[in-house]
Simulated assay, not measured.
Amino acid sequence: MTALLPAELAWYVTGRFYQAGKDGPVADYGYFLHLPFPDLPLFDGKRGETTAHFTFAARPFQAQGVTNGGLSLGVDPVGEFSLYLQRRPAGTFDDPASFAQGECIATFRRTSLVVGTTVDATIGAKTEALVGTNVFSARLVASTPFEFGGGRHDLADQIGRGVTQFGTATGAPILPPPKGYTLVLPFTGSAIALGR
């Protein structure tokens, strides 16, 4: 299998941001729609969170906020997230910790602060968040080879030193949020390889 070139597409993800409490920690969880392993089955059946073999989970972090007119900026500290192989898929957005099950196959550390931008709009007398974006780079700090789908694979061989990911989130929260969380926002992300 050929390693990705720098800036070549590495993955697509979809997931949700979860906030615990009004000003509590935030973490994101979800699953992969694409990985640089063309022959691997990513799902056990129809594409969705409950059938995904490859999931991710972030370590919770404390976000800070800045406002600039109709823009709300979330400033997230440097942190880590891990990728998991679930041979028997068990992920569900009703239980975000379920995405951190299975075999940890890689861990990434964001290289700097992440600034996420949410566009707000005033509709009548109410201000609502419409859409949010972010971009970050993350270095691969650990990778474990794994056997799956009839072959041996290692994410480090494919993407090199890490990724830069571009994300888009909706401003419309999931209601009601799961127990223990006050805000849940769905997002999607696409990442390019940093290369060697």
Rank of each mutant, 00 (worst) to 15 (best):
V78H: 12
A90E: 13
E103G: 00
P38A: 02
H153D: 12
F43E: 07
F146S: 06
T168F: 12
A106D: 04
A97S: 11
A58P: 04
D76R: 15
Q86Y: 06
Y31P: 00
T107E: 00
I105L: 00
T51I: 06
G70N: 15
N134M: 10
D44P: 10
K126P: 00
R47F: 05
T144E: 13
P41G: 09
T55P: 04
V135R: 14
P38V: 02
L83E: 04
P173R: 11
P145M: 06
E128Y: 10
A100L: 04
T55A: 09
P38F: 05
V119C: 01
F32Q: 00
R161H: 15
R47Q: 10
T118M: 02
D76Q: 15
A172K: 14
L140Y: 01
P60E: 08
L71A: 15
E49C: 01
L71K: 15
F146L: 07
R47L: 08
F54E: 01
T164W: 10
V115H: 03
D120P: 04
P89H: 09
V119Q: 04
G91T: 01
V135D: 12
L85K: 08
E147W: 13
F99P: 00
Q86I: 08
E49L: 03
L85P: 07
Q62F: 14
N68T: 13
F37Y: 02
A52P: 01
H53T: 05
Q101P: 03
I159L: 14
A63R: 12
R47I: 11
L33Q: 11
P36T: 02
H153R: 09
A172M: 15
R152Y: 12
G48R: 06
R109I: 10
I174N: 11
N134L: 07
G69C: 08
L155N: 02
Q64L: 12
D120T: 11
F54H: 03
V114R: 00
A156C: 09
N68R: 15
V131P: 00
L73G: 13
Q158C: 14
R109V: 02
N68F: 15
H34M: 13
N68P: 06
R110S: 09
P145V: 05
G91D: 05
